[in-house]
Amino acid sequence: MSSVIGVFDSQEQAEKVLQELKGSGYSEEGMSLVAKEDENAAGNRQQGEETGEGMGYDENRTEMISEDQKLTSGTTTGGAIGGVAGLLAGAGTLAIPGVGPIIAAGPIAAGLSGAAAGGLTGALVDYGIPKEVSKDYKEQIRGGNMLAIYEGVRNEEEVTEIATIMQRNGAIDVENY
């Protein structure tokens, strides 16, 4: 089995990919998303925690924010998660050394919950991505891009279909590992 990874420069593109994959019959369990959290979102999330207001997707600011999460268990303990992160299970905010606050959703979120040791690069290496390529993806995230990952691809036909869906929806780069 392998993983197909697409790099996107907008949340809208990544959301469309995930929706199209689901619509094409691909399991949500194989979908992951990693994106840098906007620093304004982190501040708003903290302010919301202080005021008790729920968090969600702010369409005017085009960023993802979330309420209280426990990534180690992959379950939401707070209110609703909106936007693209809401499409996947286990979404939440996590501070990654060398990157800062990120949003992670799907199976990769559990791997990132122990990121203090290996960081984002280590979690991506665990996905079978070479270390040098993982470092590049880390820089992509740091620069504000998003990774959409589909893991558990069984054959070349699925690789081609998933890559085509990602490219059709604006992927900057698509790779298979």
Rank of each mutant, 00 (worst) to 15 (best):
Gln13Glu: 08
Asn44Gln: 13
Gln140Val: 09
Gly118Glu: 05
Glu20Lys: 11
Ala104Leu: 04
Ala91Glu: 00
Gly128Asn: 08
Val99Tyr: 01
Leu33Gly: 03
Ile162Cys: 04
Val174Lys: 02
Val34Gln: 02
Asp173Leu: 02
Lys131Trp: 01
Gly30Trp: 03
Gly170Arg: 05
Leu120Met: 07
Ile149Glu: 00
Ala89Thr: 14
Ile149Ala: 03
Gly98His: 07
Gly54Leu: 10
Gly118His: 10
Arg154Ser: 14
Glu39Tyr: 08
Asn155Lys: 04
Ala116Tyr: 09
Gly122Cys: 10
Gly170Thr: 09
Ser10Val: 03
Gln69Met: 13
Ala123Gly: 14
Gly52Met: 07
Ala35Ser: 12
Gly23Lys: 09
Asn145Met: 12
Arg154Ala: 13
Gly82Leu: 07
Glu29Pro: 00
Ala123Arg: 08
Ser10Ile: 02
Leu18Lys: 04
Ala123Gln: 08
Ser10Trp: 01
Leu71Lys: 13
Ser10Leu: 01
Ala89Ser: 13
Ala163Tyr: 05
Met146His: 15
Gln13Pro: 00
Leu112Asp: 02
Ile129Asp: 03
Ala105Ile: 05
Phe8Val: 06
Glu157Cys: 01
Asn44Ser: 09
Ser32Arg: 00
Ile172Leu: 08
Asp58Trp: 11
Leu33Asp: 03
Ile165Met: 03
Met1Thr: 15
Gly79Asn: 11
Met55Trp: 12
Ala116Ile: 12
Lys16Tyr: 03
Pro101Trp: 03
Glu12Asn: 06
Asn176Gln: 06
Ser73Val: 15
Arg168Val: 01
Gly122Asp: 08
Ser32Asn: 04
Thr62Asp: 15
Tyr150Met: 10
Leu94Gln: 11
Ala41Cys: 10
Glu53Ser: 12
Gly170Val: 09
Ile129Phe: 08
Glu37Arg: 12
Thr121Lys: 15
Gly143Leu: 05
Asp58His: 15
Gly54Ile: 07
Asn40Phe: 06
Lys131Asn: 06
Gly25Lys: 01
Pro107His: 09
Gln13Cys: 06
Ala163Asn: 01
Asp68Arg: 14
Gln167Arg: 15
Gly83His: 02
Met31Val: 05
Ala105Cys: 05
Asn145Phe: 15
Gly78Ser: 14
Gly6Met: 03
Tyr57Ser: 00
Tyr150Ile: 10
Gly170Cys: 04
Gly106Asn: 10
Glu158Lys: 08
Ala14Trp: 01
Ser66Thr: 15
Gly119Glu: 06
Ile102Ala: 01
Ala148Cys: 13
Gly79Phe: 08
Lys138Gly: 10
Ile172Arg: 09
Gln167Leu: 11
Thr62Phe: 06
Ala117Tyr: 14
Thr75Gln: 11
Ile108Trp: 10
Gly25Tyr: 05
Glu156Ile: 14
Met64Thr: 14
Gly170Leu: 05
Val99Ile: 15
Glu175Ser: 15
Glu139Tyr: 08
Glu53Gly: 04
Glu50Met: 10
Thr72Pro: 09
Gln11Tyr: 09
Gly128Cys: 06
Arg168Lys: 13
Val99Gln: 01
Ser3Cys: 12
Thr76Arg: 15
Glu53Ala: 11
Val133Lys: 15
Ala91Thr: 11
Ser2Lys: 12
Pro107Leu: 00
Pro107Val: 03
Gly122Ser: 11
Gln46Asp: 07
Ile65Gly: 04
Val133Asp: 02
Lys131His: 11
Ala85Glu: 11
Met55Thr: 11
Glu158His: 12
Asp38Pro: 00
Ile129Trp: 05
Gly82Lys: 10
Glu49Val: 13
Ile5Ala: 02
Thr160Cys: 00
Gly122Thr: 13
Arg142Val: 09
Ala110Thr: 15
Val99Asp: 01
